[in-house]
Simulated scan of single mutants.
Amino acid sequence: MKKPVKKLIKYTLAAGLFAGILFTIAPTEGSKTKTIPLAEKRFSNKDALFALLKLDSLGLSKEAFNYALSGLEKLEKEGKLKNPDLLTIADFSQPSNKKRLFVIDLKNETVLFNTFVSHGRNSGTAVATSFSNAPESFKSSLGFYVTGDTYKGQHGYSLRLQGEEQGINDNAMSRGIVMHSAAYVSEQIAKLQGYIGRSLGCPAIPEKIHRQIIEVIKNGSCLFLYSPDKSYMANSKILAADKDTTVA
């Protein structure tokens, strides 16, 4: 009879110790260990992050940055992003002879790339002013995209893009809108003619660093093509909730 009693005591002590561990680890009601969504912690002060990254000196529109963060947060909450720590912005409010593509590591608060990016040939010459979701329009489509997988096509190593805004850029896949490299996207050409070459609607990037950029942002990160275009601003459902925070 002694052995069963010893075993019982042993098991009781073990159970009590385990329960004590659980009690210690588990947050109590009203405690300060309440989980805060990642997006809310990251974007609680957009102005401070903008200043920390020195994006103003790099030429990025503050309005573009704020809208980009808001859209990324929405896509993250909807579970559409596999990598919400990366944000890529093409600021089409800037002329194409400016380095208007920004790849930002939000987790480590670092600008990974700042380089040139093209717009569609029918969107404008130096500045993109006209946009379309229509096939064969040869225009850029504004708005939010989620990066897809990579492939080797006509322009070499390329990145598929999924448009997330209905009626604005959701024809991206069927139009063949991807990120790829192009010889006409270079600083030399920008200096020679005042603007870089234009694509058929794709955000084309420089040949020298296209592979590095695509490798970083592929498979589920957020890409935002921005312009203060009145039609886009009026029809974007992703930005609808954030329009009252627009920076003047």
Score class of each variant (00 low, 15 high):
residue 90 A to I: 10
residue 90 A to M: 03
residue 92 F to M: 11
residue 92 F to L: 15
residue 92 F to Y: 15
residue 92 F to S: 03
residue 93 S to V: 05
residue 93 S to H: 08
residue 94 Q to G: 04
residue 95 P to D: 04
residue 96 S to P: 09
residue 96 S to L: 02
residue 96 S to E: 03
residue 97 N to R: 01
residue 97 N to C: 09
residue 99 K to D: 09
residue 101 L to T: 09
residue 101 L to N: 07
residue 101 L to G: 06
residue 102 F to L: 13
residue 103 V to L: 13
residue 104 I to Y: 06
residue 105 D to A: 12
residue 105 D to G: 05
residue 105 D to Q: 13
residue 105 D to K: 03
residue 106 L to G: 12
residue 106 L to P: 05
residue 108 N to R: 11
residue 109 E to Q: 15
residue 110 T to F: 09
residue 111 V to F: 05
residue 111 V to Y: 13
residue 112 L to Y: 04
residue 112 L to T: 08
residue 112 L to I: 14
residue 112 L to N: 12
residue 113 F to I: 07
residue 115 T to N: 09
residue 116 F to Q: 04
residue 117 V to H: 00
residue 118 S to M: 07
residue 119 H to T: 09
residue 119 H to F: 03
residue 119 H to A: 07
residue 119 H to V: 13
residue 120 G to T: 05
residue 120 G to M: 03
residue 120 G to R: 10
residue 120 G to H: 03
residue 121 R to N: 09
residue 121 R to E: 13
residue 121 R to C: 05
residue 122 N to Y: 07
residue 123 S to N: 05
residue 123 S to Q: 00
residue 124 G to Y: 00
residue 124 G to S: 03
residue 124 G to D: 09
residue 126 A to W: 03
residue 127 V to G: 03
residue 128 A to L: 00
residue 128 A to W: 00
residue 128 A to E: 06
residue 130 S to K: 15
residue 131 F to Y: 13
residue 132 S to I: 03
residue 133 N to V: 09
residue 134 A to G: 01
residue 134 A to P: 00
residue 134 A to K: 13
residue 134 A to H: 06
residue 137 S to M: 06
residue 138 F to M: 03
residue 140 S to V: 10
residue 143 G to R: 05
residue 143 G to D: 08
residue 144 F to M: 14
residue 144 F to R: 08
residue 145 Y to R: 07
residue 145 Y to T: 12
residue 145 Y to W: 04
residue 146 V to M: 00
residue 146 V to T: 15
residue 146 V to K: 15
residue 147 T to K: 11
residue 149 D to Y: 14
residue 149 D to T: 15
residue 149 D to S: 14
residue 150 T to Q: 04
residue 150 T to S: 09
residue 151 Y to L: 12
residue 151 Y to A: 11
residue 152 K to Q: 08
residue 153 G to I: 12
residue 153 G to S: 08
residue 154 Q to I: 08
residue 154 Q to H: 08
residue 155 H to R: 11
residue 155 H to V: 01
residue 155 H to C: 00
residue 155 H to A: 13
residue 156 G to A: 14
residue 157 Y to W: 10
residue 158 S to A: 14
residue 158 S to E: 14
residue 158 S to D: 07
residue 159 L to M: 12
residue 159 L to V: 10
residue 159 L to R: 01
residue 159 L to P: 03
residue 160 R to S: 12
residue 161 L to I: 03
residue 163 G to N: 12
residue 163 G to S: 10
residue 165 E to Y: 05
residue 165 E to L: 04
residue 166 Q to K: 13
residue 166 Q to T: 07
residue 167 G to S: 13
residue 167 G to A: 08
residue 168 I to A: 02
residue 168 I to F: 06
residue 169 N to S: 08
residue 170 D to Y: 08
residue 172 A to K: 02
residue 174 S to T: 11
residue 174 S to G: 01
residue 174 S to H: 02
residue 175 R to H: 07
residue 177 I to E: 02
residue 179 M to T: 14
residue 179 M to F: 06
residue 180 H to W: 00
residue 180 H to F: 08
residue 180 H to N: 02
residue 181 S to L: 00
residue 183 A to G: 02
residue 183 A to Q: 12
residue 184 Y to M: 01
residue 185 V to L: 04
residue 189 I to S: 12
residue 189 I to D: 02
residue 190 A to V: 05
